[in-house]
Nucleic acid binder design. Structure first.
Length: 263
DNA sequence: CGTAATACG
């Protein structure tokens, strides 16, 4: 039997109803994902349309915020049905905002996560850091049992100076604070690989640009969307490619991807 | 400035 090629794509759509009006289906087709994961859907179940839930041959999975309307939320379209789909990590404090989808496949577990933004207040920064803590405790339990783990989504932090256009000007803003950057160090030291950076150590490529000040036009961006994999996935030679697609529009983020070859 | 409901990113 031949090896199986799998394309995983992650995209913070900043409002699913908004991108839907901006050629989303066309982008989706062009991206060619086996699993397309989206963050910030900004809707609840009653606002889903039949078109959103029935895309081609894919099955749709959703997690909604139960505490705020039109806020947060993640989703995934899967061409192959996962063996199990889970919502959240069993901690209401971190599950209520609909930020986590766990798709369990035969050979690996895939997480789609919209990590909190910490810019609103000190409380939200604290929530963000505790969310990192709680989520990775959950994911590590699987990884440390020997299960290959893929984690993708909007991490809402740029790791190093290479990961944003204006590191000096943003050194004191949430999204590039030392305490947040240290958390991204910790993710690597826990045994995950930042796939894009691993393949392209010198590349200055971003996945998010503020809507203000024509930031995308001047490429004043940040790389805050990631595909992390547990080290075994790299060591076993599953990684065929990792990419950031700056040519797809419709949101303040662009899609990112991971191509795997699974024996 | 943009999304989706007056807050949040």
């Amino acid at each position: 039997m031949g090896a199986e090629e799998v394309r995983l794509v992650s995209w913070n759509v900043n409002g699913l109803r908004a991108v839907w009006k901006k050629d989303f289906l066309e982008s989706m087709e062009r991206l060619g994902a086996d699993v397309l994961m989206v963050q910030e859907t900004k809707l609840q179940e009653p606002q889903l349309t039949p078109e959103m839930t029935a895309v081609n041959d894919s099955k749709a999975h959703w997690s909604f915020s139960t505490v705020k309307k039109g806020y947060s939320g993640v989703g995934a379209w899967t061409k192959t049905d996962p063996a199990a789909v889970r919502h959240g990590i069993g901690m209401p404090e971190f599950d209520d905002e609909g930020r986590i989808l766990e798709l369990e496949y035969d050979k690996f577990t895939l997480f789609n996560v919209y990590f909190p933004n910490g810019q609103q207040s000190d409380e939200r920064l604290d929530y963000k850091l505790r969310f990192y803590d709680a989520f990775f405790a959950y994911a590590n339990a699987l990884k440390d049992k020997g299960r290959p783990v893929v984690i993708c989504g909007d991490v809402n932090t740029a790791h190093n100076e290479i990961d944003l256009r204006h590191p000096k000007a943003n050194a004191k803003r949430s999204g590039f604070l030392p305490v947040e950057r240290e958390w991204l160090d910790r993710i690597l030291s826990m045994g995950y690989v930042d796939t894009f950076r691993h393949l392209y150590p010198e590349e200055e490529k971003y996945s998010w640009w503020s809507y203000r000040f024509n930031a995308r036009k001047s490429n004043a961006g940040w790389r805050i969307d990631y595909f992390y994999v547990s080290r075994d996935i790299l060591d076993n030679g599953w990684i065929k490619g990792a990419w950031i697609d700056n040519d797809t529009f419709g949101s303040d983020h662009c899609p990112i991807g991971l191509d795997l070859v699974i024996p």
